[in-house]
Design a protein around this nucleic acid. Structure first.
Lengths: 110, 110
DNA sequence: TTATTTCATTGCAATATTACGATAAACTTT
DNA sequence: AAAGTTTATCGTAATATTGCAATGAAATAA
């Protein structure tokens, strides 16, 4: 066992889980916040910002890229990362929807 | 290694990561959606809704509870779960903030 | 060409997660 | 009390994640 049973869930459920999972580590949250702050997508001084070794950061960046939360552009021998706004919007809207449904009928038993 | 270095990150970063991580599995996304749909917090027929064994569902519920995304109320010999709206609001606002900062100055290099 | 810089990949050890059968705990019903 | 219902916990196997040293790949600078 140990493998997630993705086939039994809807595509949307898997998609949300993928994005959420990518944000399920403080280092990756920190990367997103840093990229949001510097705005212009600065490359690998993310490594200097984080208390982690370069290969570890590279791995985290890869996961954020796989989840489409960031994208990277080659720029000389450096690589320029920035946030994929669309994906952030997707997950934001997802929570908006959940909250709207919850507000609809107050759930009042707990 | 294999242990996340939580001490090196801010409390907020760890908090967001904790909630995101809890949603980082399609079964747990499905549970949240189910609880949102039925609204009145029905108990353990969550097990019937999911393609997973009862102990597995119980474990997922525990993680959602630890992340404060749901709470449970004992009701006779059954347990009644429902969503902790406040936590959903917290993560929703977090993304609202990220998007606001991104909109502020367009990041235009990727 | 030979460094140097920048980032990715490989390989590995430590730890965490996922899933479930078996069992326990707690309440209800008979 | 005995049997049933409902949920949690334990134990364990399979797999995934985290972290880093070492190494590679690719562009730049000397």
């Amino acid at each position: 066992m140990g493998a997630t049973k993705t086939d039994h869930f809807t595509d949307e459920q898997n998609a949300i889980a993928t994005v959420a999972k990518a944000l399920g580590h403080p280092a990756r949250v920190a990367i997103i916040e840093y990229l949001t702050k510097v705005n212009a997508c600065i490359c690998g001084d993310i490594v200097n910002e984080l208390p982690l070794a370069q290969p570890t950061v590279s791995q985290h960046l890869k996961e954020l890229k796989n989840a489409k939360l960031i994208k990277g552009n080659i720029e000389g021998n450096a690589i320029c990362y920035c946030i994929e706004e669309k994906t952030v919007e997707t997950i934001h809207k997802y929570f908006t929807g959940i909250l709207a449904k919850l507000a609809d009928e107050k759930n009042n038993c707990c």
